[in-house]
Amino acid sequence: MSSLSIQHLLGLHEVPREDIQLILDSTDTFLEILDRPIKKVPTLQGKTVVNLFFENSTRTRISFELAERRLSADVVNFATSSSSVSKGETLLDTARNIEAMKVDIVVMRHSAAGSGHFLSTRCTSKFINAGDGAHEHPTQGLLDMFSIRQKFGTLEGLRVCIIGDIAHSRVARSNIYGLITMGAEVAVCGPPSMIPFDMEKLGVRVFTSLPDALRFSDAINVLRIQLERDAGADFPSLREYRNTFGITRERLDAAGKDITVLHPGPINRGVEIESEVADGPYSVILPQVTNGVAIRMAVLYLIGTKAE
């Protein structure tokens, strides 16, 4: 099997097509392992992986941990509540201390954009970004792409629209970079106050009308509206958001075609997406979760076994 050109997975921006192809293709193999009675292979035996989570996360952390354990890696978890960060230690000191305990791979979630870039230039471990601020969440981008490819057989020429708070979304950015590299046509849709500056220059179409966006799309990726975000800052109310941008059965029907529906989770039912859609026949939301473990196994394997 060939190997990746990248040393770390910090994002999908400027990751070559061959690397993304390799990760997606390898994921098929790991997905098959997940269907076996004994879901474990010795691929990363003897390797130590640290999950550094400086921000709350349940599903991404569990998904990574399962992937690591199924590859037989030794796993250490570190979350802010149990860390020394609260005592005023810098990220760099925390990372260097953990590294001094001889780990091989660091999986990191952090609220600051670019924190992976920052550490990877100062530490010797392999880094996998599990989400950095509003920058990137590459394994989520990859699992979304994998799920779309699973449904359509290819990404080339497919039309994918990401809907919601694009400005604050690392999921949106990773999807945009990865999908464009793989030949998809990408659009975003949301209120203009949630679309970041000069978005078109990233090579995406921008819709502010949901019906137009749905008519464009073969697949939509519906972003979670962050309820904890200051309501009223970027849009007037959840009610108005739901009424204007909420994905409902009725709106999908009006588009006149079968649109595949993705959501990175966790879902706010009845806000950005209606239950009937989330649980409906065109939803791949649960397969996304399964694929997430396989994608992370593929990434851990390819990054972790890559020769220095």
Binding site: H13, A113, G114, D132, A134, H135, R173, F197, K201, L202
Partner: peptide, 13 residues
Amino acid sequence: NESVVSTELGLPP
């Protein structure tokens, strides 16, 4: 600065 670069990097503009 708010620009296509801040959009790309996800840094607060």
